[in-house]
């Protein structure tokens, strides 16, 4: 989809980019957030509060703070960014991959906290029973634990997805607002308003509003039905 097919005034690219970012972010978070939540839920290590605090930081930190540090970290002018560039030929600043990393960190608490409380609401007995039946914890995770906490997984995924759509500060700092690469819908709205194109801004805003509402509404509806079924 590009601007030509839908008239030159309205550019669908930022919306498409927004949903791509949210989808990739949510997928990455499912892969790393579930094991992380599992570890936090069952570990007895003394540094657990430190880890939990770090993961929750994006909830209270202004997104611009996170974006600022990521900008410094990714910049080839500093050690880490230089290292990424030299060893992996990877430039994260002003790139889509950079946005994904920032977005993953920013939405991490929504995924990890939902899934962690999902694990903690399961009886410990399930894990122990599975162990006495000769099954590895890995097997137990996929056959028993995760299937019994689908609402928590769904909540975590949807909140992460919705939160990624609403991203502004981090994207602004590390994305650089490059059309087609890092210019997501929330940035496009800002741009259009800056240049007094209220109609275009309104269209982006309305789409984001409707989509976000629909997703969240669907989740509440699903959880409600599930609650009644049990």
């Amino acid at each position: 989809m590009n601007a030509d097919s839908l008239g030159s005034v309205f550019d669908w690219e930022p919306l498409w980019l927004t949903f791509k970012l949210a989808l990739v972010t949510t997928s990455v978070l499912l892969v790393i957030g579930v094991p992380l939540a599992y570890w936090i839920a069952y570990t007895r290590t003394r540094i657990k509060p430190v880890i939990e605090t770090l993961i929750s930081m994006p909830l209270v930190l202004p997104p611009s703070v996170l974006g600022f540090y990521l900008l410094l970290a990714f910049s080839p002018r500093y050690a880490f960014g230089q290292w990424l560039q030299d060893w992996f030929h990877l430039q994260l600043v002003f790139s889509f991959s950079g946005l994904v990393i920032g977005s993953v960190i920013f939405s991490m608490p929504f995924m990890v906290q939902s899934v962690q409380s999902g694990f903690q609401s399961l009886p410990v007995n399930l894990l122990e029973a599975s162990r006495t039946l000769g099954k590895s914890d890995w097997h137990t995770l996929f056959r028993v634990l995760l299937p019994n906490m689908r609402p928590a997984l769904l909540t975590g995924a949807v909140l992460s997805f919705a939160h990624s759509i609403g991203e502004f500060g981090v994207v602004m700092m590390i994305g650089g607002n490059i059309p087609g690469v890092t210019r997501v819908a929330s940035l496009a709205i800002f741009d259009e308003v800056e240049s007094s194109h209220y109609a275009a801004a309104n269209r982006y805003a309305a789409v984001l509003f409707v989509v976000s509402f629909t997703i969240l509404f669907a989740v509440y509806l699903l959880n409600r039905r599930r609650g009644r079924a049990v």
């Binding site: 029973a129 599975s130 162990r131 056959r143 019994n148």
Partner: peptide, 21 residues
């Protein structure tokens, strides 16, 4: 030996049946 490698059966007081199975 971890529980997996002991030849045991354990019946829990609250059964601990797997709700999804």
């Amino acid at each position: 030996l971890p529980p997996q490698r002991r030849s045991i059966g354990f019946m829990f007081q609250d059964y601990a049946l797997f709700p999804n199975l």
